[in-house]
Design a protein around this nucleic acid. Structure first.
Lengths: 337, 337
DNA sequence: TTGAAAGCGCTAACAT
DNA sequence: ATGTTAGCGCTTTCAA
């Protein structure tokens, strides 16, 4: 049978309340009593039931982190940051992969409610009406990562996606490219939309024509990049550069191109997004837009902790600045080719 | 205020017990009553408290997965498998990174106890006495992955590490290499030890001398491979091939070598372990020993589910077979070099 | 088929 | 400083 607070109380000759006070570090306990109780606790190897405590408190010290896919190194790194910070504060973190599917998100948020989680950090798949309604009803604080829901009052930690898209396009344009394709992320994500806007505006700014067919949407997985190369690029040989919505797709794209005997950046320039570790280790070191992965997670966790501790005030918007990292997958456009 | 079973009971004109029966799909409820109650539940958007339920049941439907580091793609893939299976059965999965640190493991196992988790799946960092004691006292089933604790009665899912080590060494030996170094994993892990035994036995079998200094232990991170190249290999120029304890270290090693102007496999042959996705995308496609990552996770989850459902019987040992995947990072030994 | 009541292990208000 | 008591939301005997 499980050892309970009652056992500790009996063995140390005090009441349950006193044991509870010792457990919660309540000041009103005689030092001697405290010592005695602590000793019995050690002796019996007592472990408090977080569930019982949770029932009384109305919640448990657990935070949900909802991301796209833990196998994407960008999310893995972010997850580490979130855990590092929250564990230090005594919170447990439950990481759920939405697979970029709003329905799965819904399920996970519901689970967080049923389990009485203390908070949620999420990168939303899309900004759907259902999600917004769900978040509005929520009884625990939420921090949104890299996405923006205009109608929901939550803290938001993000990176300037517009700027990221602009920087990527500008880099390619300055290298002389005029026919640039964009393999974007999910169409309904605000991050995707913002990057696209930046991408388009850079074209406008430099007076370069850009037509709709140059924009293709992918699912952020390596295969999407691979497919894009095999299907789209082989049909559109005028394309001399591609801006990918993340590094994973860029890597898949490069792989496919090599299979066809093409070389990067000789035949085509490729720029990624995120700057995951792999970007600098791939067969062609990837030029990319760096997002401060760890820092984003860290900040999100810190902001959430403040909210869970009851800090009030207007929703925060913390926006990091993306950075162009030039490596070897982009090069000057050579008309001869 | 939270909507409780009581609210549902009042609104539908029945007792709490009946509502509970509806919730738990108990057969003894009049179909009409059941319908009415369900309707009220939907109407009010009622969500049962898993915590309250957990208090009564003595546990919650949550499983802990304790791994080394989620940023290692091998673990990320395995994690996906475990989650896929367990979520389908209605369990939540909490993933904790031990950072290969037995103390962190201890903390996580304790947390699992305090929260009343239904089960644990873990890859142990080391087989310490403290861990064994902790596991013996545990009130929930445990499945061990790729590690073996002789004195603890748990199910074990693993890959034949001895064979893996043997295959790696044999491959290099057959290519003509005679001075092979082994950058192993953690010294105290049974997986590391078994692979080392295989590595040594292959040498013995082929009548090749091997001395102790050829074995170096690393922490399974990319930096360890990098460092190994910079520090060890530059001091030991007779080494013509390296067997790495995982792909990540192999990748780091190759990176360092390239920085020094060396080429793989021209100057040195490298073989990894795991066969993570990156292995086939790196600048040199990695020869490696494949472990069936997803399948291992899947099997571990299935075995654990059986135990949680009360299936009894002797501890299972399921052992997968590793496979040599030959790519481009290993080549025949050229005496000229 | 249903309801009343006890109890899971803990915290916190209140009383002493 | 300590004990008594009520109650968190649910499941589960037991009785009707």
């Amino acid at each position: 049978m499980r050892i309970t607070i009652k056992d500790i109380a009996q063995r140390s000759g005090v009441s349950c309340s006193t044991v509870s006070r010792v457990l919660t570090n309540h000041p009103n306990v005689d030092p001697k009593t405290r010592e005695r109780v602590k000793q019995v606790i050690d002796e019996l190897g007592y472990r408090p039931s977080r569930i019982a405590r949770g029932l009384v408190m109305g919640q448990i010290n657990v935070v949900a982190l909802i991301i796209g896919d833990i196998r994407n190194p960008f999310y893995a790194e972010l997850t580490r940051a979130v855990k590092d910070i929250l564990n230090k504060e005594g919170y447990m973190v439950v990481v759920s992969d939405s697979d970029y599917d709003p329905q799965k998100e819904e399920i996970y948020i519901r689970a967080a409610e049923e389990y009485g989680f203390a908070g949620i950090i999420m990168i939303t798949a899309m900004e759907t009406e259902a999600l917004i309604q769900q978040l509005e009803k929520l009884r625990c604080p939420v921090v949104l990562l890299n996405r923006y829901l205009p109608s929901v009052e939550t803290d938001v930690i993000s990176v300037d996606n517009y700027l990221g898209g602009y920087l990527a396009a500008e880099h390619l344009i300055k290298l002389g490219h005029r026919n640039i394709a964009h393999l974007a992320g999910f169409k309904n994500s605000s991050a995707t939309r913002d990057r696209l806007r930046g991408f388009i505006d850079a074209h406008v700014h430099y007076g370069i024509q850009l037509n709709q067919e140059r924009i293709v949407y992918g699912n952020l997985q390596m295969e999407a990049g691979y497919k894009f190369a095999k299907e789209y690029l082989s049909q559109n040989e005028d394309i001399t550069a591609v801006f990918c919505g993340n590094d994973l797709m860029a890597l898949g794209l490069i792989e496919a191109l090599y299979e066809e005997g093409k070389e990067i950046p000789r035949d085509i320039s490729v720029i990624g997004y995120d700057d995951i570790d792999m970007a600098s280790l791939a067969r062609v070191k990837l030029t990319t837009i760096r997002q401060p992965q760890y820092e984003m997670g860290q900040t999100a966790a810190e902001v959430l902790i403040d909210r869970m501790k009851g800090k009030i005030g207007a929703p925060k918007r913390i926006i990091f600045t993306p950075k162009l990292i030039i490596r070897e997958s982009t090069a000057e456009y050579k008309p001869g080719k």
